[in-house]
Amino acid sequence: MIEISNVSKWYGTFQVLKDCSTRVDKGEVVVVCGPSGSGKSTLIKCVNALEPFQKGEVVVDGISVGAPGTDLPKLRSRVGMVFQHFELFPHLSIMENLTLGQIRVLHRGEEESRDKGMKLLERVGLREQAAKFPGQLSGGQQQRVAIARALAMDPLCMLFDEPTSALDPEMINEVLDVMVELAHEGMTMMCVTHEMGFARKVAKRVIFMDRGEIVEDATKDDFFGKPRSERAQQFLSKILHN
C-alpha cells in the first residue's frame, strides 16, 4: 500500500531524511517512533507529499507521489491524515468540517455527506456535537472529530502524526480507543506516536528513527523483545520507565 524507497530530504545543506526505506502493506499497522527531531513527522508527511523530498520514491497504492504528473489532490484524498494539533477548521461547524472534503473533493451531495458525517460522529461518540464549533470541544473530542473527518473521505490508508501528544493525559485513551478500533477493522495505518501501549496492542511492525535514519524496522515482538540498536534500547528504556 505504502512503499518508501531510499528517500532523502535536505533543508538547505541539512539532511533531515537519510536514505529511508520501508513499507506498509494493506491492513498493516506500523508505528514510527524516535526522539524529537529524528524526522518521523517529516517522513510521514512525505507519504502524502505535504513535504517534498529530493531523492528516492514514495509509492501509494501504485502511484508515485513525487512523480511530476501525479494528481496530488486526488492522491491525498485517498490518504487520511490526522495531525498533532487536530487542525479542525475553526470557522466551520463540526458537521461542516466533516462534509467539506466530501462535497468539494469527492463531489458528494450535501445530504449524502451529512449522513456519512453523522454516522462517523456516532462512531466516535460525538453525535450530539455536530452543530458545535471546534473551539467548543475538548482536545480529545477535537481529535476524534479529526479522525472522523479523515474517515469521511473513505481513505485507503491513514497517517497519524503524533495524534495524542498535544492532549491532556486523561484524554489520550479516548483517542487511542478509536485508533485501536480502526486497526481491528483492518485499516492500513502508519502512526507516528510514543504510545507504546498502542504499539503493543495493534502494531505489526515498529520503526525506530534517529537523526533522519530508520535505525530499526522490526516486528513488534522483536522490537520490544530485543531491539538490535543501542539507540533504540536507550530510547525504549527512557520512555517505558516514565
Partner: peptide, 9 residues
C-alpha cells in the same frame, strides 16, 4: 496542510 491533506487544491 490539513486542507491539502484532505485533497483540496
Amino acid at each position: 496542510e490539513a486542507g491539502l491533506a484532505m485533497g483540496l487544491t
